[in-house]
């Protein structure tokens, strides 16, 4: 693969636990090209979220290399990681993680204010356009508590796109949605990949979500395996 936008090389990660050291990831290596929609699948405890955290720079590998959008994340300082996160990636969480005291539009504007993305006077307009793109512009001035789960997740996606990141990471984005909203959200992600060549890496254990991705990376007990996804989902 030429110029992968994400490259992991022999990445391992362990955590201290009550029963000793727990290995979450073991010598994981893979690459993802620009414009790919990749699903990272596996059972609970397989290391999916750990992997996503490493890609987001939220966590550091014990060994190996993590290179995302040209940045060797494993060697950046905490401050540099924060700055990189603001522009290098967008993250969508299972439980939306919107700030409760900001409206939908303000939540989308927040990353722009933090990273000083674009002129201040234009940020609200940009936020409204993103919300429009996600189909929730009419909810722009409502607080998250007044929005449905599906609406909140769309706002979260809009926020993740606020600073034009080349990569979108999504951790179980449909985990807290009903089937209708989940389907709609996956459609949005697919459209973003198609229309804007966004690279989307989505952690999921849901079949219908996995089926929307172009390909899957399967994790079993912290290792990448090559068995068919269907088989793993039924294991």
């Amino acid at each position: 693969m030429s110029d992968p936008v994400i490259r992991l090389s022999q990445v391992s990660k362990s955590y201290p636990g009550a029963g000793g050291l727990f290995t979450a990831l073991s010598e994981v290596s893979f690459e993802i090209a620009r414009g790919e929609f990749v699903a990272i699948v596996g059972q609970s405890g397989s290391g999916k979220s750990t992997l996503l955290n490493l890609l987001a720079g939220i966590d550091r590998p014990a060994s190996g290399e993590v290179i995302v959008a040209g940045q060797a994340l494993h060697s950046l300082s905490e401050r540099a990681l924060s700055a990189w996160r603001g522009r290098g990636i967008g993250i969508v969480f299972q439980f939306f993680q919107l700030l409760p005291t900001l409206t939908a539009a303000e939540n989308v504007m927040l990353p722009m204010d933090l990273c000083k993305h674009g002129p201040a006077a234009e940020r609200r307009g940009r936020a409204l356009r993103l919300l429009e793109r996600l189909g929730v512009a009419d909810q722009a001035d409502k607080f998250p508590a007044a929005l449905s789960g599906g609406q909140q997740q769309r706002v979260a996606v809009a926020r993740a796109l606020a600073n034009d990141p080349p990569i979108l990471l999504a951790d179980e984005p449909t985990g807290n949605l009903d089937s209708r909203n989940a389907k709609a959200l996956l459609q949005v992600l697919a459209e973003l990949v198609r229309d804007e060549r966004l690279t989307v890496v989505m952690v999921t254990h849901e079949r219908h979500a996995m089926q929307r991705a172009m390909r899957s990376i399967q994790l079993v007990d912290g290792r990448v395996v090559t068995a068919p996804a269907e088989a793993l989902l039924h294991a």
């Binding site: 924060s82 993250i91 993680q97 700030l99 933090l114």
Partner: peptide, 16 residues
């Protein structure tokens, strides 16, 4: 705590 985590994810530095 959680909101601080979110801010960090969104690119806020410790000083901010």
């Amino acid at each position: 705590s959680r909101e601080i985590g979110i801010l960090k994810v969104l690119g806020a530095g410790p000083r901010q």
